[in-house]
Design a protein around this nucleic acid. Structure first.
Length: 542
RNA sequence: GCCCACAUAGCUCAGCAGGAUAGAGCGACUGCCUCCUAAGCAGUAGGCCAGAGGUUCGAAUCCUCUUGUGGGCACCA
């Protein structure tokens, strides 16, 4: 059990013995060492209802706490009504062998054991290369999936795409136009067509493969474009270390009758009606302020229809947890999907939608407006080639999902050595180097060490930070916010670098060296586990 | 106009299930390698936590309003 949980329980029991009814017992790390290592403000929160001074409550609760002195060295109150715990250093010291023993399972849990999760992310339609805009989605999704796996979930990474809609039709027409340009029979380029050079490349490859005798409206234009672009997207994802377990195509739900069935069921519930030659979903009946078009007057369904059928399919596949990673532009639309599922009697409370804010790309201090259609974009491949997958991944999760991300291209490329990801990786590399050096001197400190030798304040601070890792990981499972892990690792690396400066590891004092080697091995394990969850490499040298 | 986010150091951002003195990186200035990688460490300067109310013993954190920024409000996805 984790330290805070132990203290929480002791505090709660002691408070109850004194006749209080504590609601939430919060324990925080003390910032000032004169307040011990951990503190609780429980007495302050009880004071009002009890009509007693907080300090008096603190004293009486402390009197009832059953101290395990292997863990807690001292408990004392401080004004205006905190209870402070001084933790026995031996508790922290004992973590070293615990972490080494746990190895790559340190920080893991079995909260998701025998449970399945589906994480749907990227889901970009194959109309062009993967851009930086998609990148944030891709990295968040993959990292969230890693977090779930860290807790034992069996995760399906899924990519959903539409190939039946207007966008894909435009893509085919754009390729077609470029093809006929190449064979000298120019036809009009579609309005809103895709202008990127990659369209010309595709047209050229079609020309190379099929000659110049293709006729207008040949389905081959769209089919080839889709195939080529999709292969390119998958390759870009692999470059980022991302692999999908399943690709699901919108077309499936037309072909297997799911969409018709779904519309029929809504109709039976009188949630669908016809107006102005279109078919509408009666969202107002379900608490929204306007109805939504389901089938356009052209006869073409809107994206909501297959999307909802797709989500119903995911629910029916029986996952314990379903996660969607959407950009902020979907904030208004996904509730309609959930509403429709609920209207059909499906449970949706195991669906979690993670919305992330957009990426603003800066070059020379100016915003770049990106548009796939206008071919004004930076591709993920370009970026990964310039700054490495590690840096790109870190950049996308180092900011909280719901704040806008400024991606400064100049900073990411020209000053990449200063990227914070190197700071943590350097800590890992430093440790590897010290261990190697120790081994080179014939000092292989494997099992036999006395952790009581770890008494320097930098050592204790490092140990305290190592202790927090499992808590950080379980909080990450609850919040599904990768950023917290990145922040923690920054803190851990900082503690290590400070320790490195204060405490020499390989010294003439063999016992001390053995203890310190064990400490850095434990640190290395936690760094590597954290980097691994973020999908970053843990380099042995830099 | 309506809905959702966001607003903290010169810049980019942490901190937000309320807690004791608001942090980091970059940038500026000062120090630290005869010693495990200086991709590091220590320090100085820099803040009305957007503004105004409220709740509370206690607010950067919760609530309301104002202002500003981004996104959404399509028979686009």
């Amino acid at each position: 059990m984790k330290l805070k949980e132990i203290l929480q329980r002791q505090l709660t029991e002691a408070a109850e013995k004194e006749g209080y009814t504590p609601h939430s017992v919060v324990i925080t790390s003390s910032k000032d060492e004169k307040h011990g290592d951990l503190s609780s403000s429980l007495p302050l929160s009880l004071a009002k209802a009890a009509k007693k001074p907080p300090m008096e409550i603190a004293e009486s609760i402390i009197g009832k706490i059953e101290i395990d002195d292997r863990i807690v060295a001292d408990i004392f109150p401080s004004p205006p009504g905190f209870i402070n715990f001084k933790i026995n250093p031996s508790y922290y010291q004992s973590l070293v062998s615990e972490i080494i023993k746990a190895g790559n399972t340190y920080g893991q849990s079995d909260k998701g054991k025998n449970k399945t999760a589906n994480v749907e992310f990227v889901s970009a339609n194959p109309t062009g290369p993967l851009t930086i805009g998609h990148g944030r989605n891709a990295v968040i999704g993959d990292t969230v999936a890693n977090i779930l796996e860290n807790h034992g979930y069996n995760v399906t990474r899924e990519y959903y795409f539409n190939d039946a809609g207007r966008q894909m039709r435009l893509l085919g027409q754009s390729v077609e136009a470029r093809y006929f340009e190449l064979v000298g029979k120019e036809i009009e380029f579609p309005n809103d067509g895709y202008e990127g050079n990659y369209i010309k490349d595709i047209a050229q490859s079609i020309l190379d493969e099929h000659g110049k005798s293709l006729l207008p409206s040949d389905p081959l234009f769209k089919e080839n474009a889709e195939k080529i672009i999709f292969a390119d997207i998958e390759n870009s994802l692999v470059n980022l270390g991302i692999h999908f377990d399943q690709f699901t195509n919108e077309k499936t739900f037309y072909e297997n009758g799911e969409i018709d069935r779904f519309l029929e069921e809504l109709k039976a519930k009188n949630l669908i009606y016809e107006k102005d030659d279109a078919t509408w979903f009666r969202t107002t009946e379900l608490g929204k302020d306007q109805d939504r078009v389901y089938i356009k007057s052209t006869g073409e369904p809107t994206y909501r229809v297959p999307d909802t059928a797709y989500h119903r399919d995911k629910v029916n596949r029986g996952f314990d947890l379903i996660i969607d990673i959407f950009g902020a532009d979907h904030a208004d639309t996904y509730p309609d999907v959930l509403l429709a599922l609920e209207a059909l009697g499906l449970k949706t409370d195991h669906i979690r939608v993670l919305l992330y804010q957009f990426v603003t790309l800066l070059r020379n201090g100016e915003k770049i407006k990106m548009s796939t259609r206008k071919a004004n974009f930076i591709t993920m491949d370009e970026l990964v080639n310039e700054v490495s997958a590690d840096v790109v991944r870190y950049f996308f999760i180092m900011r909280s999902m719901n704040s806008h991300l400024n991606f400064d291209l100049d900073l990411a490329t020209d000053h990449s050595e200063k990227n914070p990801v190197f700071y943590l990786q350097y800590a890992h590399a430093r440790i590897c180097n010290i261990i190697k050096r120790g081994a080179g001197l014939g000092k292989d400190f494997t099992n036999d060490f006395d952790s009581a030798r770890l008494t320097h304040s930098s050592e204790i601070e490092l140990l305290k930070t190592l202790e927090q890792f499992p808590e950080i990981m379980s909080s990450a499972l609850k919040l599904l916010e990768p950023q917290d892990i990145a922040n923690y690792l920054q803190d851990l690396a900082a503690r290590f670098h400070r320790f490195y400066v204060d405490c020499r590891v390989i010294t003439d004092d063999n016992d001390l060296s053995a203890a310190r080697v064990a400490l850095i091995k434990a640190t290395k394990i936690v760094l590597a586990n954290g980097l691994n969850v973020l999908g970053l490499t843990a380099p042995e040298r830099m």
